[in-house]
Simulated assay, not measured.
Amino acid sequence: MCSVILWGGAASVALSRERDDIDAVVNIDAPFFSELVYDKVTNELTAKSEAFTIPLLNVYSDDVWIQLDSSSSYLPYIANRISNKNFKGAYNVHFKGAKHLSLTDLPLFSPILANLLQGGKADIDKYYAIETQNELILRFFDYALKNQGQFAPKATY
């Protein structure tokens, strides 16, 4: 049996560490809260040192992508950093010009609300963003769960 979690990227990563019936994870623009631990020596939050072994696709907007650089000190995303060796097998894609809600269907049926909630209109075409993301996720699941085809996404869309 293959179980997959699509909603709640942070919850997806956390649950996949706890359950045996999750075989692939898609994280859309979410911090890995469950991967943060408190270091008493430095008095700071750090990333866990446990390897993540389940196929993982991370999809990021501009807002999050800029925080994944190893020099960024923005706490919620320190475990998501591209340099985090515990996630070395993860696929990371960036939708240039996207805001967080660009990676949802909200801009398709309520663009005014999406723009209001995210502080303005995204630079990416809303149809391109959702259609490309959907196609990527389907190809990822075909590859990771059905062993069909290959999966080699571009770094930036």
Rank of each mutant, 00 (worst) to 15 (best):
L57A: 05
D39F: 14
V59M: 03
P31V: 08
P76N: 11
A24L: 03
N86E: 08
Q67W: 05
N27D: 14
F109A: 04
T53P: 02
N58G: 04
S61Q: 01
S83T: 15
R17D: 08
D20M: 10
P76I: 06
L15W: 14
L145H: 06
K126M: 10
I54G: 04
V4Q: 03
G149A: 11
L103D: 00
A152K: 05
D20E: 15
L56F: 08
F32T: 01
F141P: 02
L106N: 09
A30W: 00
L108N: 13
D21Y: 13
D20N: 15
N86A: 08
L136K: 00
L117H: 15
E35T: 07
E18L: 11
V4Y: 13
P31C: 06
P31F: 09
L138M: 04
Y128T: 09
S102A: 12
K85H: 10
L106Q: 08
L116K: 14
N43T: 14
P76D: 06
G8D: 08
L6T: 08
P31H: 05
D63T: 11
S34P: 10
P111F: 04
K85P: 03
A79N: 02
Y128Q: 05
V59L: 04
L6H: 13
I66M: 06
N86G: 07
F95L: 05
L68M: 10
V4L: 11
G89D: 13
V26F: 09
L56H: 03
S3M: 13
N115R: 15
I112Y: 14
L138Q: 06
I28W: 01
S71T: 15
L45R: 02
G89S: 15
A11C: 09
S102R: 01
M1F: 15
Y128W: 14
V64A: 01
Y157E: 02
L108C: 10
K96E: 12
E44G: 03
F33H: 06
V4E: 04
K88R: 12
D125W: 02
E44H: 12
F140L: 04
A51G: 01
D123M: 11
H100R: 02
W65Y: 08
A122W: 03
D63G: 12
D21P: 02
I54R: 03
E131D: 13
I66C: 04
E135P: 00
L15H: 12
D69K: 10
F32P: 01
A51E: 12
D125P: 05
A122G: 10
K154A: 13
L68Y: 03
S70P: 05
V59E: 00
L36Q: 14
I78N: 01
A152C: 01
D125C: 08
A10T: 15
G89K: 07
M1G: 12
L6I: 10
R139F: 00
V13H: 02
Q133G: 05
L6A: 08
N92T: 10
D29F: 01
S110Y: 11
P107Q: 01
D21M: 05
